[in-house]
Amino acid sequence: MTVRWAGAAVAALALVLAGCSAAEAPKPAAAGAPVTSSIPVTKPFKGLQPTSVKIPKIGAESTLLAVAVKIDGSISVPSVHQPMQAAWYKLSPVPGDVGPAIVLGHVDGDKKPGIFFKLKDLVPGDEVDIDRSDGKKLKFVVDRVTQVPKDTFPRDAVYGNSDKPELRLITCGGAFDHAEHSYKDNIVVYANLAA
């Protein structure tokens, strides 16, 4: 059964800025602007959740906070004062369930590297391990890594439904715009559940 994203969730995902610099905060959606989208999600959060992420190649390991959307329509992310903390977007599927599970992490924060500082260094075939609250230990294999400008973020490719368990890892990347206190791009890693 397919469930459609809530309006606030779509607004937040359209503005993906998760995992960016200490100086940057997610920008709110325009006040009062109607939000429509054809982007569905397969299974919203209902209790079961991922508890940790580990990426051996880049030495990244973190527990996972469950985050959602703030009242202003922006996506909630871990504090930049804890740049090594990753989060799971709980309106996406639980990793291992059908659909694209979304895991977010900072590239940096407090002038220190973040949990996904080296995310851009992953290549197809690299592994990502996810543990869940039901005791399952899942292995995902990277399919591709992209760097995309934030103003052309591929929402359908990242958040659109799929017919198998998939994982998306997202952080910021590219050049840092000091005037905007923001990285110009997002790094998105696409991974599939290992057979």
Rank of each mutant, 00 (worst) to 15 (best):
Lys43Cys: 11
Lys43Trp: 08
Phe45Ser: 15
Lys46Gly: 11
Gln49Trp: 12
Pro50His: 07
Pro50Thr: 00
Pro50Asp: 01
Thr51Trp: 04
Thr51Lys: 08
Thr51Tyr: 04
Val53Trp: 03
Lys54Asp: 12
Lys54Gln: 14
Ile55Asp: 09
Ile58Gln: 14
Gly59Ile: 10
Gly59Asn: 03
Gly59Trp: 06
Ser62Thr: 02
Thr63Lys: 08
Ala66Asp: 05
Ala66Lys: 03
Val67Met: 02
Ala68Arg: 12
Lys70Phe: 09
Asp72Cys: 04
Asp72Gln: 08
Ser74Phe: 08
Ile75Asn: 02
Ser76Val: 05
Ser76Cys: 04
Val77Tyr: 06
Pro78Asn: 08
Ser79Thr: 12
Ser79Asn: 06
Val80Gln: 12
Pro83Tyr: 04
Met84Ile: 09
Met84Glu: 14
Ala86Pro: 00
Ala87Lys: 00
Ala87Cys: 05
Ala87Tyr: 03
Tyr89Thr: 10
Lys90Pro: 05
Val94Met: 11
Pro95Phe: 07
Pro95Asp: 06
Gly96Glu: 01
Gly96Arg: 03
Asp97Cys: 08
Val98Thr: 15
Gly99Trp: 00
Pro100Ala: 13
Pro100Gly: 03
Ala101Leu: 01
Ala101Gly: 07
Ile102Pro: 00
Ile102Met: 12
Ile102Gln: 01
Val103Cys: 06
Val103Arg: 03
Val103Asp: 05
Val103Glu: 07
Gly105Phe: 00
Val107Leu: 13
Val107Gly: 07
Val107Cys: 11
Gly109Ser: 12
Asp110Leu: 08
Asp110Tyr: 09
Lys112Asp: 02
Pro113Thr: 02
Gly114Trp: 01
Gly114Ile: 10
Ile115Gly: 02
Ile115Cys: 01
Lys118Asp: 14
Leu119Gln: 01
Lys120Tyr: 10
Asp121Thr: 15
Leu122Ile: 10
Leu122Pro: 02
Leu122Ala: 11
Pro124Thr: 11
Asp126Thr: 00
Asp126Phe: 06
Glu127Pro: 06
Glu127Arg: 14
Val128Glu: 05
Asp129Tyr: 15
Asp129Glu: 15
Asp129Lys: 15
Asp131Gly: 07
Arg132Val: 10
Ser133Leu: 01
Asp134Pro: 03
Gly135Asp: 08
Gly135Leu: 07
Leu138Thr: 05
Lys139His: 13
Phe140Asn: 14
Val141Glu: 13
Asp143Cys: 03
Arg144Glu: 15
Val145Met: 02
Gln147Arg: 13
Val148Met: 05
Lys150Asn: 02
Asp151His: 10
Asp151Val: 09
Thr152Trp: 08
Thr152Cys: 01
Thr152Lys: 14
Phe153Val: 07
Pro154Asp: 10
Asp156Lys: 11
Asp156Gln: 14
Asp156Cys: 03
Ala157Leu: 14
Gly160Trp: 09
Asn161Gly: 09
Asn161Pro: 15
Asn161Trp: 08
Ser162Cys: 10
Lys164Gly: 05
Lys164Val: 10
Glu166Phe: 04
Glu166Ile: 04
Leu167Val: 08
Arg168Gln: 07
Leu169Arg: 00
Cys172Ala: 14
Ala175Arg: 13
Phe176Asn: 02
Phe176His: 01
Phe176Lys: 08
His178Met: 04
Ala179Leu: 10
Ala179Phe: 12
Ser182Gly: 01
Tyr183Arg: 02
Asp185Ser: 13
Asp185Phe: 05
Asp185Asn: 15
Ile187Lys: 03
Val188Ser: 07
Val188Thr: 12
Val189Gln: 01
